[in-house]
């Protein structure tokens, strides 16, 4: 079992952008996107996400698992929400509406009345577009951002030195711990341990994971003592550390960050100044349902 990062140099435009500018851009677009429920605006943001995906030069084969996860996640939760929408969320705007289908169920003695209306179906479509856009916005990050740059990126974005170093170390420990995991798994299998065929009830099955989890964790903790001692002996933390990789903003980074701020401000003006962008159902859909 090989544990590798999804990142590899692809020579894409996105990789040339400073990672700090990319994080700022991603969160600005996320904030902008979450202002809207109107599918026309959401489709614009989905377009931005798809352009970003195309520019990243990742292949469908690489990202298929991620997209499948996102789609199952979005469609599953939206289907549940469409059937059972009640009070408490943005879906509250959907009270009433043009009924397409309604039934009465009794579940554990409770009467429930799932109702599908044109508004709910349209809201579900808007939800899926919004969830896919939000998830897709961050999907390419592991594929296009060098793991060696996370520590210095967050350090230069204001994260305290020790936290940033801890982040940097974590990325470096992954291959070593994955190798330890595989060694332990092989050793336990040689003793007759069958992780794929755990028998017994749920609790027994979880307990049977202990021969895998405990040795790897305790070994890692023991090696941690040695690393701590080595770092203490080298006076770690007595002053701010320097980083092997240095990041420098370029013109295109400033342009991207500036554009992100403009998009956010424009979204806030459109949404709260012009009061545009709330949930919208096209006239043809209402006409089709007889409204």
């Amino acid at each position: 079992m090989l544990v590798t990062w999804r990142y590899r140099p692809r020579g894409s435009v996105i990789e040339k952008v400073d990672p700090r500018a990319r994080w700022i851009y991603s969160f600005m677009v996320l904030l902008s996107l979450t202002q809207f429920w109107d599918i026309r605006f959401l489709l614009c943001f989905l377009g931005v996400v798809l352009v970003q995906y195309a520019l990243a030069r990742v292949t469908w084969a690489e990202t298929r698992r991620g997209w499948t996860f996102i789609l199952i996640f979005a469609v599953g939760i939206v289907a549940l929400n469409t059937l059972f929408t009640g009070r408490g969320g943005p879906g509250e705007v959907l009270q009433g509406g043009h009924v397409l289908w309604r039934t009465d169920w009794r579940v554990l003695g409770l009467a429930i009345h799932p109702t599908i209306t044109v508004e709910r179906v349209w809201f579900a479509v808007s939800q899926i577009v919004r969830m896919v856009s939000i998830s897709g916005l961050f999907l390419i990050i592991p594929y296009t951002m060098n793991p060696r740059h996370y520590g210095v990126t967050f350090r230069s974005m204001g994260v305290p030195d020790r936290f940033a170093f801890s982040m940097d170390l974590a990325f470096r420990f992954v291959p070593t711990l994955a190798r330890d995991f595989n060694t332990t798994l092989d050793a336990q299998k040689a003793r007759g341990y069958e992780v794929e065929k755990l028998e017994g009830g749920l609790i027994a099955q979880i307990r049977k994971m202990a021969p895998l989890v405990v040795p790897v964790t305790m070994n890692a903790i023991l090696s941690g003592e040695e690393i701590t001692n080595a770092m203490d002996l080298r006076c770690f933390g007595t002053r701010l550390r320097t980083w092997v990789h240095e990041l420098h903003y370029r013109r295109m980074d400033y342009v991207l960050m500036g554009a992100s701020v403009v998009v956010l401000v424009a979204s806030l003006v459109v949404r709260y100044g012009l009061k545009i962008g709330t949930f919208w159902v096209p006239g043809w859909a209402l006409a089709w349902a007889g409204g």
Partner: peptide, 19 residues
């Protein structure tokens, strides 16, 4: 959050990610 915590936070995160 001293040296020991820096190291164990990193080990814990890597372990959780790998597991």
């Amino acid at each position: 959050f001293g040296t020991r915590e820096v190291v164990y936070a990193a080990i814990g995160a890597a372990l959780y990610g790998v597991f």
